[in-house]
Amino acid sequence: MRSSLAWLTEIRRALPLAAAVLLVGALLVPMWRITLTAPQYPGQELLIELYAYPRLGGDFAEVQGLNKYAGFYYPDPVYVDPNYEISEAAIDVPEWLLGPVVFAGLALTGAFVAFAPTVRKLKTGLTAQFVGTIAVFVGMFAFIQYRLHQAGHSLDPDAPLRGIDSFTPPLLGPYEVANISGFAWFGPGGYMTLVAVALLAVAYLARDVDATVGELPELARALPGAVRERTSNGGRRSNRGDQAATDESERDRDADRNPEIGGGDRVG
């Protein structure tokens, strides 16, 4: 019987663990960055860095001074005191505290899936994790964009600059407010999150094979040929393929009932 460590070298088990490490690491660095240019700072770009929890980095103090002219304020996390000044006119975003909970929860899920005791449970876990992770991040993206819309449509009417129309800062991309230009994009944590999701996608696609991480280059080289072969067959499955799928399903069910069947497909 193969050891637990040997099983964890499989692509479908190792990549969820690697994704878990990346998701935890993403909490330690900025998730999002905004660069700003303004006439008050000629030839200079100001940088704001936002973390997955209520913390800002970079030139946030200088930018806070610019925001006051337009009546746009950093959000209030409500239940904690962040490292920046909170205005009474700021919108409330108590859910910002949940960022570490979400990332840690997804990381723990990856570890749990990687140690699934049978192939059948592993496949189910990989599918659920991949779909769930996509759903979580799409939901987070949409909710953050809503909060940005809310902030841009709650400008302080007593701000020094009058006549500024309400606006919606994009989560990703350029925008302008009065004479201030901004560009929002991923920070290091955002890129780490994207890589983690990509690893989960690869693990999901490799759920039916027991290839190890060391075999990834060989599989990648063989992929174009496999795609061409499947395309040339018109996507039709042969009777032999149907029978093989049926046999594999039966083996998985037998392995769940008896750990000694199917080559001892249990972590131990």
Rank of each mutant, 00 (worst) to 15 (best):
R12K: 14
Q145V: 05
P16C: 01
G264H: 12
F137S: 01
S4M: 15
L50D: 08
N258C: 04
V227F: 06
I144P: 00
F183G: 11
G190N: 14
S87W: 00
E229A: 14
V195L: 15
R13S: 08
W32Q: 02
D158F: 08
T246P: 03
T133I: 04
H153V: 01
L56Q: 07
R12P: 04
P54V: 09
T37A: 15
R230A: 12
D208Y: 14
R236F: 10
L219Y: 01
V213Y: 05
L148R: 12
E229M: 13
R228F: 04
G99C: 05
A244E: 11
R253M: 05
E176Q: 14
P39D: 07
Y41L: 03
P259N: 02
I86C: 02
Y73F: 02
Q150N: 06
D242K: 10
T212P: 10
L47N: 13
Q129H: 14
L223M: 15
F167G: 02
A52C: 11
D81T: 12
L172Y: 09
A222E: 10
M1H: 15
N179S: 11
T133Y: 02
M31R: 04
V131P: 00
A198T: 03
P100I: 04
M192I: 09
M31L: 08
Y79K: 14
S238P: 06
H153T: 13
E95G: 02
L171Y: 04
D265K: 07
E10G: 10
P42F: 09
V202I: 13
P94H: 01
P160L: 06
G190S: 13
P94C: 02
P174R: 08
E248I: 07
P82V: 01
R228C: 08
R147Q: 15
A111K: 06
S232L: 09
T133N: 03
I180D: 00
F103S: 01
E62F: 07
G71N: 00
S166T: 07
V80G: 11
R257H: 12
L219R: 15
V267K: 12
E248Y: 12
E248L: 11
D76F: 00
T246I: 10
G234T: 08
P39V: 09
R13V: 08
A111G: 14
E218Q: 12
Y74D: 03
D242R: 08
P16Q: 01
Y191D: 11
V102K: 03
V197I: 14
A61Q: 13
L17G: 00
V78L: 06
A226S: 13
G65E: 13
G132M: 12
S232Q: 11
F143T: 15
K68H: 13
N179W: 07
A201I: 07
L47F: 09
F112I: 10
L216E: 04
L205A: 15
G214A: 12
D208I: 02
Y69F: 13
P30C: 04
R147D: 15
A116G: 12
R266V: 10
D156K: 04
V202P: 01
F72R: 06
F60G: 00
L50S: 14
A211Q: 09
Y79T: 15
V101S: 07
F115R: 07
R221T: 15
D247K: 10
Y175A: 11
L155N: 02
Q145C: 08
W185T: 13
L98S: 04
V131K: 00
P117A: 09
I11F: 13
K123H: 12
T37V: 13
R13Y: 09
A14D: 10
S249I: 08
V78M: 02
P169S: 03
V78D: 01
